[in-house]
Design a protein around this nucleic acid. Structure first.
Lengths: 196, 196
DNA sequence: GTTATAATTGAACAAACGTTCAACGCACAA
DNA sequence: TTGTGCGTTGAACGTTTGTTCAATTATAAC
């Protein structure tokens, strides 16, 4: 019936996502996106409607990757404390290898997205809420198996850990901030993981 | 000798700062700034060199206010724990009255400022480092008077509290995030303030 | 009042922005 | 082989961006 698309949608979105991630939404121009994807404006607009459409799908792509990573660390072997430890070790590892210091796309979006574009915030927030929910589940399990402190509810602990992650990503942007990342995580987890 | 300026510099900067604060650097245009300040482009450029100059001075203005607030809460009456509590109560109060949910200009800048403009990050980071330093002093005092836990060094505790503040400002951007602000602060301070 | 100096004005600039669209090209169904 | 439908092309659009500057106005010093 018709001509077939000459590009891989996810491949294009990956390039777009990398740009949005390192430069933010506002500082990423359509010109940048056409160059990075090697697609002409018309093709991009046909496939993604407009710049915001590209961004939303980029965020979705990022979110899927985040969920995979979350399952890979919070799921699997070990007791609850060990798995949470694994999640944070993975976070620290990623941050240490982030030469550009891009941080987390969702958190950046939460801060950068304008108040009059609530859809962006909503999506980013929702994706992060998922991580919080998984934290709460694992913490609850940990309060059962004795690896997690029981002075505070799993939900409150989950919110504290999320706050810790958010704070870490901001702290990492300060001069020499990343040098303290490991230590901050240790202090944070001390308050949640059962000593001994 | 010459004509005198017809505007109050700090008054103009206050308007500029409010704009940068609520809309961010990139989404605030020179046109917005001329309208808000009722000054023509030429006057603004004569007084502040360019847009970045206006922003830097706006950040300075904000920083001065932050320092005053920090002294007003961390200084003054009460033991160390009470003063830190006062700082966070003030933070929560300000956040609750922030109808636009603007958050903190310095933290927003740390996230929004591009990697190729390190001066912005440097200044914002420095201003926040000052607060961290004051935290460390008060915490050290508190470890002496028994109001602050001694399991962790004051410097580490200070970094944890800063991370908590940063995290709170991100958490506040999530849907319904602000509803948990008070509770998150409580959980955070539990780990630092001596129980009893 | 005159003059020197600086502040103010606002139109105008080039560049960059997001977006559109008529023309063209390719692949599939018939 | 041909026709149809959709993907592709890239020049061009109208705005908006940050910034400049010659002309004008106001003030302080004399």
């Amino acid at each position: 019936m018709a001509r077939t698309a000459a590009f891989e949608r996810d491949q294009v979105l990956t390039e777009a996502m990398k740009l949005f991630w390192s430069r933010g939404y506002n500082r990423t121009s359509m010109r940048d996106l056409t160059q990075a994807t090697r697609l002409n404006p018309g093709s991009l607009y046909a496939a993604f409607r407009n710049k915001q459409g590209m961004f939303l799908e980029s965020v979705d792509l990022y979110t899927r990757a985040l969920r995979r990573e979350t399952e890979a660390t919070l799921g699997g072997e070990g007791n609850a404390a060990a798995r949470i430890r694994r999640f944070f070790d993975n976070l620290l590892d990623g941050s240490a290898h982030d030469a550009e210091n891009k941080g987390c796309l969702l958190i950046n979006t939460l801060i950068e997205a304008p108040a009059d574009e609530p859809e962006l915030r909503r999506r980013a927030g929702e994706a992060l809420k998922y991580v919080e929910g998984r934290f709460a589940e694992v913490l609850d399990e940990g309060q059962g198996d004795g690896s997690i402190r029981t002075v505070t509810s799993p939900e409150r602990q989950a919110r504290l850990l999320m706050t810790g992650i958010f704070g870490l990503r901001v702290y990492a942007r300060m001069p020499e901030g990343r040098e303290h990342a490991v230590e901050i995580v240790d202090t944070l987890l001390q308050g949640v993981i059962q000593a001994g």
